[in-house]
Amino acid sequence: MKPAPFDYFAAASADDAVRLLAEHGDEALILAGGQSLVPMMNMRLARPSVLIDINDCDEMKFMAADGDGFAIGAGTRQKDILKSAETCTAVPLLLKALAFVGHVQTRNRGTLGGSIAHGDPSAEMPLVAVTLDAAISLRTSNGERTIAASEFYSGPMSTERAPDECLMAVSFPLSTGAGTGFHEVSERHGDFAIVSAAAEINLDAGGKCASAAIGIGGAHPHPVKALKAEAILVGEAPSDALIEAAAEAATDGIEAMDDVHATGAYRMRVARVLAARAISDALAEAGL
Protein backbone atom coordinates (compact mmCIF):
# COMPACT_ATOMS: atom_id res chain seq x y z
CA MET A 1 0.00 0.00 0.00
CA LYS A 2 2.47 2.60 -1.22
CA PRO A 3 1.40 5.51 -3.39
CA ALA A 4 2.31 5.60 -7.07
CA PRO A 5 5.17 8.02 -7.74
CA PHE A 6 4.33 11.72 -7.96
CA ASP A 7 6.08 15.04 -8.01
CA TYR A 8 5.55 17.38 -5.13
CA PHE A 9 5.37 21.16 -4.91
CA ALA A 10 4.81 23.11 -1.75
CA ALA A 11 2.81 26.18 -2.70
CA ALA A 12 4.00 29.26 -0.86
CA SER A 13 0.79 31.17 -1.51
CA ALA A 14 -2.65 30.79 -3.04
CA ASP A 15 -1.36 32.43 -6.21
CA ASP A 16 1.44 29.94 -6.28
CA ALA A 17 -1.04 27.11 -5.89
CA VAL A 18 -3.24 28.21 -8.79
CA ARG A 19 -0.20 28.87 -10.95
CA LEU A 20 1.02 25.32 -10.29
CA LEU A 21 -2.45 23.99 -11.00
CA ALA A 22 -2.51 25.85 -14.32
CA GLU A 23 0.88 24.47 -15.15
CA HIS A 24 0.15 20.83 -14.33
CA GLY A 25 -3.52 20.74 -15.22
CA ASP A 26 -5.42 17.49 -15.00
CA GLU A 27 -2.58 15.53 -13.53
CA ALA A 28 -2.28 17.63 -10.40
CA LEU A 29 -4.24 17.54 -7.19
CA ILE A 30 -4.24 19.92 -4.28
CA LEU A 31 -3.00 18.37 -1.05
CA ALA A 32 -4.73 19.97 1.92
CA GLY A 33 -5.02 17.96 5.13
CA GLY A 34 -4.65 14.74 3.21
CA GLN A 35 -6.91 12.76 5.51
CA SER A 36 -9.08 11.52 2.65
CA LEU A 37 -6.71 11.90 -0.29
CA VAL A 38 -3.68 10.13 1.15
CA PRO A 39 -5.53 6.90 2.03
CA MET A 40 -6.77 6.81 -1.56
CA MET A 41 -3.25 7.43 -2.82
CA ASN A 42 -1.84 4.74 -0.54
CA MET A 43 -4.33 2.33 -2.05
CA ARG A 44 -3.56 3.72 -5.51
CA LEU A 45 -7.22 4.58 -6.00
CA ALA A 46 -6.01 8.12 -6.57
CA ARG A 47 -2.81 8.58 -8.49
CA PRO A 48 -2.04 12.21 -9.22
CA SER A 49 1.32 12.68 -10.87
CA VAL A 50 1.70 16.05 -9.16
CA LEU A 51 0.71 17.11 -5.67
CA ILE A 52 0.44 20.76 -4.82
CA ASP A 53 0.65 21.15 -1.08
CA ILE A 54 -1.19 24.15 0.35
CA ASN A 55 -0.41 23.43 4.00
CA ASP A 56 2.05 26.30 4.13
CA CYS A 57 -0.35 28.82 2.57
CA ASP A 58 -1.19 30.74 5.71
CA GLU A 59 -3.43 33.12 3.79
CA MET A 60 -5.81 30.18 3.22
CA LYS A 61 -6.25 29.67 6.94
CA PHE A 62 -8.71 32.18 8.30
CA MET A 63 -12.11 32.53 9.89
CA ALA A 64 -13.78 35.92 9.65
CA ALA A 65 -17.11 37.66 9.23
CA ASP A 66 -17.55 38.66 5.63
CA GLY A 67 -20.61 40.84 5.01
CA ASP A 68 -23.70 38.66 5.51
CA GLY A 69 -21.58 35.62 5.82
CA PHE A 70 -18.79 34.07 7.76
CA ALA A 71 -15.90 32.96 5.60
CA ILE A 72 -13.52 30.17 6.40
CA GLY A 73 -10.34 29.68 4.43
CA ALA A 74 -10.03 26.33 2.70
CA GLY A 75 -6.83 25.50 4.51
CA THR A 76 -8.32 26.03 7.97
CA ARG A 77 -7.91 22.94 10.03
CA GLN A 78 -10.91 21.25 11.60
CA LYS A 79 -9.34 21.44 15.06
CA ASP A 80 -8.97 25.21 14.70
CA ILE A 81 -12.61 25.59 13.76
CA LEU A 82 -13.59 23.62 16.85
CA LYS A 83 -11.51 25.92 19.01
CA SER A 84 -12.82 29.14 17.49
CA ALA A 85 -15.50 30.67 19.68
CA GLU A 86 -16.28 33.19 16.93
CA THR A 87 -16.97 30.49 14.37
CA CYS A 88 -19.02 28.49 16.79
CA THR A 89 -21.25 31.50 17.33
CA ALA A 90 -21.44 32.43 13.68
CA VAL A 91 -21.98 28.94 12.26
CA PRO A 92 -23.14 26.73 15.14
CA LEU A 93 -24.22 23.95 12.80
CA LEU A 94 -20.61 23.53 11.78
CA LEU A 95 -19.60 22.96 15.36
CA LYS A 96 -22.29 20.34 15.87
CA ALA A 97 -21.26 18.52 12.72
CA LEU A 98 -17.58 18.62 13.60
CA ALA A 99 -18.30 16.61 16.73
CA PHE A 100 -18.86 13.69 14.37
CA VAL A 101 -15.83 14.25 12.16
CA GLY A 102 -13.00 11.77 12.52
CA HIS A 103 -10.73 11.75 15.50
CA VAL A 104 -8.23 14.01 17.21
CA GLN A 105 -5.42 12.99 14.88
CA THR A 106 -7.42 13.49 11.69
CA ARG A 107 -8.92 16.79 12.83
CA ASN A 108 -5.43 18.08 13.57
CA ARG A 109 -4.59 17.77 9.88
CA GLY A 110 -7.95 17.71 8.15
CA THR A 111 -9.15 20.99 6.64
CA LEU A 112 -12.53 22.42 5.85
CA GLY A 113 -11.66 22.97 2.20
CA GLY A 114 -10.23 19.50 1.78
CA SER A 115 -13.40 17.89 3.02
CA ILE A 116 -15.62 20.17 0.93
CA ALA A 117 -13.59 19.60 -2.22
CA HIS A 118 -13.28 15.85 -1.71
CA GLY A 119 -17.07 15.55 -1.61
CA ASP A 120 -17.57 12.23 0.10
CA PRO A 121 -21.36 11.74 0.07
CA SER A 122 -21.27 10.83 3.77
CA ALA A 123 -19.00 13.59 4.98
CA GLU A 124 -20.28 16.15 7.43
CA MET A 125 -18.69 19.36 6.12
CA PRO A 126 -20.23 19.11 2.65
CA LEU A 127 -23.61 18.45 4.23
CA VAL A 128 -23.37 21.60 6.34
CA ALA A 129 -22.29 23.61 3.31
CA VAL A 130 -25.16 22.31 1.20
CA THR A 131 -27.73 22.69 3.96
CA LEU A 132 -26.80 26.30 4.59
CA ASP A 133 -26.12 26.87 0.90
CA ALA A 134 -22.71 28.26 1.62
CA ALA A 135 -20.82 30.12 -1.10
CA ILE A 136 -17.76 28.27 -2.31
CA SER A 137 -15.06 30.34 -3.93
CA LEU A 138 -12.80 28.83 -6.53
CA ARG A 139 -9.76 30.44 -8.07
CA THR A 140 -7.74 29.85 -11.19
CA SER A 141 -4.77 31.78 -12.46
CA ASN A 142 -7.33 33.76 -14.48
CA GLY A 143 -9.66 34.76 -11.74
CA GLU A 144 -12.12 33.73 -9.10
CA ARG A 145 -15.73 32.59 -9.11
CA THR A 146 -18.25 31.68 -6.47
CA ILE A 147 -20.62 28.76 -6.62
CA ALA A 148 -23.47 27.85 -4.32
CA ALA A 149 -22.79 24.68 -2.36
CA SER A 150 -26.14 23.33 -3.43
CA GLU A 151 -24.88 23.48 -7.02
CA PHE A 152 -21.38 22.25 -6.28
CA TYR A 153 -21.83 18.50 -6.03
CA SER A 154 -22.63 16.24 -8.94
CA GLY A 155 -22.03 12.77 -7.52
CA PRO A 156 -19.91 10.78 -5.12
CA MET A 157 -16.60 12.60 -4.83
CA SER A 158 -17.53 14.53 -7.88
CA THR A 159 -17.90 18.32 -7.96
CA GLU A 160 -18.17 21.27 -10.34
CA ARG A 161 -14.62 22.26 -9.54
CA ALA A 162 -12.57 22.41 -12.74
CA PRO A 163 -9.19 20.69 -12.65
CA ASP A 164 -7.36 24.03 -12.64
CA GLU A 165 -9.49 25.54 -9.89
CA CYS A 166 -8.38 25.74 -6.31
CA LEU A 167 -11.01 25.93 -3.59
CA MET A 168 -10.16 29.06 -1.65
CA ALA A 169 -12.81 29.59 0.98
CA VAL A 170 -16.32 28.74 2.03
CA SER A 171 -18.63 31.49 3.19
CA PHE A 172 -21.50 30.41 5.42
CA PRO A 173 -24.55 32.61 5.99
CA LEU A 174 -24.53 33.99 9.52
CA SER A 175 -26.83 32.05 11.79
CA THR A 176 -28.05 34.88 13.90
CA GLY A 177 -30.60 33.65 16.38
CA ALA A 178 -31.09 30.34 14.63
CA GLY A 179 -31.48 26.98 16.26
CA THR A 180 -29.54 24.10 14.81
CA GLY A 181 -29.59 20.35 14.91
CA PHE A 182 -27.25 17.74 13.52
CA HIS A 183 -27.77 13.99 13.74
CA GLU A 184 -26.00 11.16 12.11
CA VAL A 185 -25.67 7.46 12.49
CA SER A 186 -22.62 5.34 11.87
CA GLU A 187 -21.70 1.95 13.27
CA ARG A 188 -18.82 3.52 15.17
CA HIS A 189 -18.41 7.04 16.40
CA GLY A 190 -16.09 9.01 14.15
CA ASP A 191 -16.72 7.02 11.00
CA PHE A 192 -18.31 8.55 7.95
CA ALA A 193 -22.06 8.71 8.40
CA ILE A 194 -24.26 6.04 6.97
CA VAL A 195 -26.87 8.72 6.89
CA SER A 196 -27.05 12.17 8.44
CA ALA A 197 -29.37 15.14 8.76
CA ALA A 198 -28.77 18.79 9.44
CA ALA A 199 -31.20 21.58 10.26
CA GLU A 200 -31.06 25.27 10.96
CA ILE A 201 -34.26 27.11 11.73
CA ASN A 202 -35.18 30.69 12.65
CA LEU A 203 -38.42 31.45 14.39
CA ASP A 204 -40.20 34.74 13.96
CA ALA A 205 -41.62 36.77 16.79
CA GLY A 206 -44.86 34.85 16.53
CA GLY A 207 -43.11 31.55 16.95
CA LYS A 208 -43.49 30.51 13.32
CA CYS A 209 -40.62 29.25 11.20
CA ALA A 210 -39.14 32.28 9.51
CA SER A 211 -36.53 30.26 7.68
CA ALA A 212 -35.46 26.67 7.53
CA ALA A 213 -32.46 24.94 6.08
CA ILE A 214 -32.60 21.16 6.03
CA GLY A 215 -30.10 18.78 4.51
CA ILE A 216 -29.56 15.05 4.19
CA GLY A 217 -26.18 13.36 3.85
CA GLY A 218 -25.04 9.82 3.21
CA ALA A 219 -28.16 8.75 1.37
CA HIS A 220 -27.92 10.26 -2.08
CA PRO A 221 -24.69 10.25 -4.12
CA HIS A 222 -24.08 13.72 -2.69
CA PRO A 223 -25.51 15.82 0.13
CA VAL A 224 -28.94 17.12 -0.65
CA LYS A 225 -30.76 20.27 0.41
CA ALA A 226 -34.26 19.21 1.37
CA LEU A 227 -36.16 22.04 -0.28
CA LYS A 228 -39.55 20.44 0.10
CA ALA A 229 -39.06 19.93 3.81
CA GLU A 230 -37.93 23.52 4.14
CA ALA A 231 -41.03 24.74 2.32
CA ILE A 232 -43.27 22.72 4.61
CA LEU A 233 -41.74 24.37 7.66
CA VAL A 234 -41.48 27.99 6.59
CA GLY A 235 -44.36 30.14 7.67
CA GLU A 236 -45.83 27.49 9.90
CA ALA A 237 -46.05 27.17 13.63
CA PRO A 238 -44.07 24.15 14.75
CA SER A 239 -45.93 21.08 15.92
CA ASP A 240 -45.20 17.40 16.08
CA ALA A 241 -47.27 16.90 12.99
CA LEU A 242 -45.37 19.61 11.15
CA ILE A 243 -42.03 18.10 12.10
CA GLU A 244 -43.22 14.73 10.95
CA ALA A 245 -44.43 16.11 7.65
CA ALA A 246 -41.18 17.95 7.05
CA ALA A 247 -39.12 14.89 7.95
CA GLU A 248 -41.23 12.76 5.66
CA ALA A 249 -40.54 15.20 2.83
CA ALA A 250 -36.82 15.40 3.61
CA THR A 251 -36.02 12.41 1.43
CA ASP A 252 -37.94 13.77 -1.52
CA GLY A 253 -35.91 13.20 -4.66
CA ILE A 254 -33.27 11.14 -2.90
CA GLU A 255 -32.14 7.95 -4.56
CA ALA A 256 -30.47 6.13 -1.74
CA MET A 257 -27.50 3.87 -2.23
CA ASP A 258 -26.89 0.31 -1.06
CA ASP A 259 -23.47 -0.52 0.27
CA VAL A 260 -21.71 -2.83 2.68
CA HIS A 261 -23.01 -0.87 5.67
CA ALA A 262 -26.69 -0.49 4.88
CA THR A 263 -29.36 -0.74 2.23
CA GLY A 264 -30.84 2.19 0.43
CA ALA A 265 -34.16 1.44 2.14
CA TYR A 266 -32.44 1.79 5.52
CA ARG A 267 -30.99 5.10 4.48
CA MET A 268 -34.39 6.41 3.37
CA ARG A 269 -36.14 5.43 6.59
CA VAL A 270 -33.36 6.59 8.87
CA ALA A 271 -32.87 9.85 6.97
CA ARG A 272 -36.44 10.75 7.91
CA VAL A 273 -35.88 9.73 11.53
CA LEU A 274 -32.73 11.83 11.77
CA ALA A 275 -34.32 14.74 9.93
CA ALA A 276 -37.10 14.79 12.52
CA ARG A 277 -34.53 14.77 15.32
CA ALA A 278 -32.45 17.52 13.73
CA ILE A 279 -35.53 19.67 13.14
CA SER A 280 -36.73 19.10 16.71
CA ASP A 281 -33.34 20.05 18.10
CA ALA A 282 -33.21 23.15 15.95
CA LEU A 283 -36.68 24.22 16.99
CA ALA A 284 -35.91 23.63 20.64
CA GLU A 285 -32.75 25.66 20.35
CA ALA A 286 -34.47 28.41 18.42
CA GLY A 287 -36.57 29.00 21.46
CA LEU A 288 -39.68 26.96 20.88
Binding site: E187, A262, Y266, R269, V270
Partner: peptide, 12 residues
Protein backbone atom coordinates in the same frame (compact mmCIF):
# COMPACT_ATOMS: atom_id res chain seq x y z
CA UNK B 1 -26.36 -7.82 14.61
CA UNK B 2 -25.61 -4.70 12.63
CA UNK B 3 -27.83 -1.74 13.16
CA UNK B 4 -29.22 -1.89 9.65
CA UNK B 5 -30.39 -5.44 10.33
CA UNK B 6 -32.02 -4.47 13.61
CA UNK B 7 -33.67 -1.40 12.14
CA UNK B 8 -34.99 -3.47 9.26
CA UNK B 9 -36.56 -5.84 11.78
CA UNK B 10 -38.10 -2.96 13.69
CA UNK B 11 -39.22 -0.69 10.88
CA UNK B 12 -38.87 -2.52 7.59
Amino acid sequence: MRMSLIEELLNG
